[in-house]
């Protein structure tokens, strides 16, 4: 479904060259929910922008259903971390969700249906005529999620979407993402710096090294498919997994080689 092959991104800032991403290769199958975690500053956002077609990689390629991504592909939606800056403040909630659909050229009745459904799915059916800035941060991010859902993407990219909301709201939104994923069968790539969040949400967790970034480890989360905040987080397996991820991240920060040594030591 989504193939990332040998992705490399070097920023040229005058005389200084910054290698944000060295060599990233991973694959998402259709309908998968995969989380990407890594130490702070490891180029997670750069990676996501390359996948979304918003940045051109220095080398390597991103394939969506076998077709190379050169610009933002039509079957992809992105939810950004900065919800306050990603919704159009001059459009009402409903219009924010509707605008990409209008751009797609969908008939009016269908758009109406999608907007209503998407807002209901995120629990904001009655906020349609409010402006985004009249809502709380968590609600604004729900609107951004509704906009992505209404777009009916094949792949949904989420860039640390809950980093700026409080812990309780975050827990609710995590469950919302799991619920929507189950309901829609969409493929989700979820980028986060929160280890618990990655293990709680994902079917797989990709652990990144620190910059210049490679994939340090791919971890399958063998927790039951039905997850809830109370029991899953108390599950011994959850604790074991999160400890493992934590160790890997700590090791990555110190620059230690990964146990599998995948992608490392090529130079």
């Amino acid at each position: 479904m989504l193939d990332v092959r040998g992705l490399k991104k070097v920023y040229n800032g005058g005389a200084r060259q910054v290698e944000a991403i060295r060599d990233l290769t991973f694959t998402l199958s259709a309908g998968e929910l995969v989380c990407l975690v890594g130490p702070s500053g490891c180029g997670k956002t750069t990676l996501l922008k390359c996948v979304a077609g918003l940045l051109t990689p220095t080398s390597g390629e991103v394939l969506l259903q076998g077709r190379p991504v050169t610009g933002p592909p039509p079957g992809m939606a992105v939810v950004f971390q900065e919800y306050g800056r990603s919704l159009f403040p001059w459009l009402r909630v409903g219009e924010n969700v509707d605008l990409p659909l209008r751009q797609k050229g969908l008939p009016k009745a269908r758009r109406r249906e999608l907007v209503t459904e998407a807002l209901a799915a995120v629990g904001l059916a009655d906020a349609e005529s409010a402006y985004p800035w009249q809502l709380s941060g968590g609600m604004q991010q729900r609107v951004a999620i509704a906009r992505a859902v209404a777009f009916e993407p094949e792949v949904l990219l989420m860039d640390e979407p809950f980093a700026a909301v409080d812990a309780q709201t975050r827990a609710d939104l995590e469950d919302l993402v799991r619920a929507l994923w189950h309901k829609l069968g969409v493929t989700i790539l979820f980028v986060t710096h929160d280890i618990d969040e990655a293990v709680y949400l994902g079917q797989r967790v990709l652990i990144l090294s620190s910059s210049p970034t490679v994939v340090r480890e791919e971890l399958t989360v063998d927790l039951p498919d039905t997850r809830d905040q109370l029991h899953t987080r108390g599950h011994p397996r959850f604790t074991a997994l999160r400890t493992h991820v934590q160790e890997q991240i700590q090791a990555a920060k110190r620059g230690l080689p990964s146990p599998s040594a995948a992608g490392d030591g090529e130079e």
């Binding site: 918003l54 990603s86 605008l99 990409p100 751009q103």
Partner: peptide, 16 residues
């Protein structure tokens, strides 16, 4: 910049 990226990723270009 985030709004510009948002618009691009949703295919909002040109006159729109």
């Amino acid at each position: 910049g985030v709004l510009l990226d948002t618009a691009r990723s949703y295919g909002i270009g040109g006159v729109a």
